[in-house]
Design a protein around this nucleic acid. Structure first.
Lengths: 186, 186
DNA sequence: TACTTATTTGAGCATACACTCTAATTTGAG
DNA sequence: CTCAAATTAGAGTGTATGCTCAAATAAGTA
């Protein structure tokens, strides 16, 4: 892959793959469907990707990266910033959010690569939430901070899970409620 | 299906299907795998079930029913009872919990039957949670009650989602924390 | 322009899938 | 015991899947 045409084709294939994973799931996404949607023939697909799994993994990487809008980890975000960023991700990047949730189940079950990646991502996310909580509540014990962060991140994923099922579900209301509740008893 | 042998075979097939959906997902569950695990040949399977989908739907029904341990809806459960029952379900019925979570994604996406069933179940569950909250906090507005119930149910599903990914995840700690937080600010 | 390398074409392959069919066996009521 | 009905056996069908390959075309470089 060195010419411009190849890069453009690669992009179209990834877009098609993303859309299909979001709507059909990882198993339900076929090479034929990807190629049809991308306007490409199987030969072209396999000129650019070694396998269907490789293309899926690329999309998975995109989804995981998209959850964390500030990978630099500058450490200045408030907890509210983190929650708002997640709300924005879920509402504005619907396809990627669907991919992200499908990851946790379809993907992680039998694919160690995806499972490891997802778990590491989750831990990093919990750590960032914990750091934000710690900044805003310096007196809280580390264990408490960690636990609250993990509960919140997990609960937020539940909100996303439901949004994936029900497009009318109001993510922002429930996500903000979780944020409020999480710190109400402090 | 009228003889005893048929009923036993049917049971073995459903057990096998449940295990396989839990570990491989709905799409990943094949007739051959079901038959191997149940010790049955395809002919027997199709003597008892019209299709693979019918067998899966039977398991889905089991999973949905298992979430609600008191279908009589006597209306005397406290919110804590409901949360504890859910914790018990998730920790003791691991396979069914996995099926239940997979439902929300793999199943509901393109199967209207499963989607409708799942949504109706969810609404019923939210209603029961709302009723319990209302009993314990009679002054709270209906809208508030409903919203808090929905946030809690959704968040609990997030906890289950994570448990499905990480077997070491402590469901009870986080589920109880959500319960506490949900009513902390009242 | 000439030539190398990337890209595209599209038929084709092996495999796995859900499902069917007929014949054999087992069941249990009368 | 008899016999019709239920159950099982297991080879077989058509189709869809992931993927390959040799030939044709397009893109960039000197």
């Amino acid at each position: 892959m060195r010419y411009k045409a190849g890069l453009e084709t690669r992009d179209r294939i990834l877009q098609a793959t993303r859309k299909l994973i979001a709507s059909e799931g990882m198993d339900g996404t076929t090479i034929k469907a990807i190629c049809d949607l991308a306007g490409v023939l199987p030969g072209s697909f396999y000129n650019l990707f070694d396998s269907k799994e490789q293309a899926i993994l690329s999309v998975v990487r995109q989804a995981i990266d998209a959850v964390d809008p500030d990978p630099d980890h500058r450490g200045t975000d408030t907890l509210s910033d983190l929650v708002e960023a997640y709300i924005k991700f879920v509402t504005e990047e619907g396809d990627l959010a669907r991919v992200y949730i499908r990851l946790a189940i379809s993907g992680s079950a039998n694919n160690p690569e995806i499972w490891g990646r997802t778990m590491r991502h989750h831990q990093g996310r919990v750590a960032r939430f914990a750091a934000a909580i710690s900044r805003e509540h310096p007196m809280m014990s580390d264990a408490q901070t960690e636990r609250r962060a993990e509960t919140l991140v997990t609960a937020l994923n539940g909100v996303t899970l439901h949004k994936v099922m029900d497009p009318d579900f109001d993510v922002s209301v429930h996500a903000r409620a979780l944020l409020t509740d999480a710190l109400a008893g402090v």
